[in-house]
């Protein structure tokens, strides 16, 4: 079992600027393979910026980011993505002019077993099969979210980053999504930002509280559910 890293992602003292603003002051995260790690915290704490830094959308100012042991800090986004990272942004951001099929085709990278992955996508999100040839602008908010996740899923990624998956979804859809993510996380590790307590605790195995640009607390699901004060202290609920 040598050379198989337990941690698919490690962030050490990562700092990021947006323009002249120092947003991340020192973020330390470990994402274990086959699990779902959740970033919690109040708005404006730096959670989305953390995901953007990992994916390469924003270059880090300092620190190391190890993806499966390889330092990816400072690499251009497309190289990081090609190394096996999928990114589902907060605003869905699908190509409305293209059909669902075209959206998936365009996301499928070289060397990918497209047909096999497509089967998985259809299993998890049957609506994708239903509207496969239709232009994606006709999709509802929930379906667009599914497409966005499917795009990250169409490749057998090492890690999938999801920013607020439950945002704008009706409760019943949130519950369906919880089930899906719990399936996905096993083969394709997931790191997500989530404000919705139910989703976060149903899906997450490990938690980091990100506040004022730093990781201030980490714990497991059991620890989080056992101690009410964590929720009050950091999330102000």
């Amino acid at each position: 079992m040598d050379n198989i890293t337990e941690n698919i992602l490690e962030l050490h003292d990562v700092e990021t600027f947006i323009g002249q603003y120092h947003i991340l002051f020192g973020v330390n995260i470990t994402v274990r393979k086959g699990s779902a790690t959740v970033l919690l915290g109040r708005n404006g704490g730096g959670k989305t910026t953390t995901l953007e830094t990992i994916s390469g959308l924003r270059p880090p100012f300092a620190g190391t980011i190890l993806l499966d042991g390889k330092d990816i800090a400072g690499l251009p986004a497309y190289e990081i993505i090609q190394s096996g990272v999928g990114y589902v942004p907060e605003d869905r951001d699908i190509f409305s002019d293209l059909t669902i099929e075209e959206n998936l085709l365009i996301s499928s990278r070289k060397g990918n077993d497209y047909d096999k992955r497509l089967e998985l996508v259809f299993e998890l999100f049957p609506d994708m099969k239903k509207y496969f040839k239709k232009k994606s602008r006709i999709l509802s908010g929930g379906q667009a979210q599914m497409l966005s996740i499917s795009r990250a899923l169409i490749n057998d990624n090492k890690l999938i980053l999801i920013d607020e998956p439950s945002k704008g979804l009706a409760p019943i859809l949130i519950r369906e999504l919880i089930d899906r993510i719990n399936i996905i996380k096993k083969d394709n590790t997931v790191l997500l930002v989530e404000q919705n307590w139910e989703m976060a605790t149903s899906v997450g195995d490990y938690f980091y509280i990100v506040q004022d640009g730093m990781t201030v607390f980490e714990c497991t699901k059991e620890e989080l559910l056992a101690d009410d004060t964590i929720k009050q202290k950091y999330l102000g609920v």
């Binding site: 994916s55 993505i81 942004p89």
Partner: peptide, 11 residues
């Protein structure tokens, strides 16, 4: 449609 997003797909 979206330059940055395409980069995020690995292109």
């Amino acid at each position: 449609e979206n330059d940055a997003r395409i980069g995020m797909l690995g292109y």
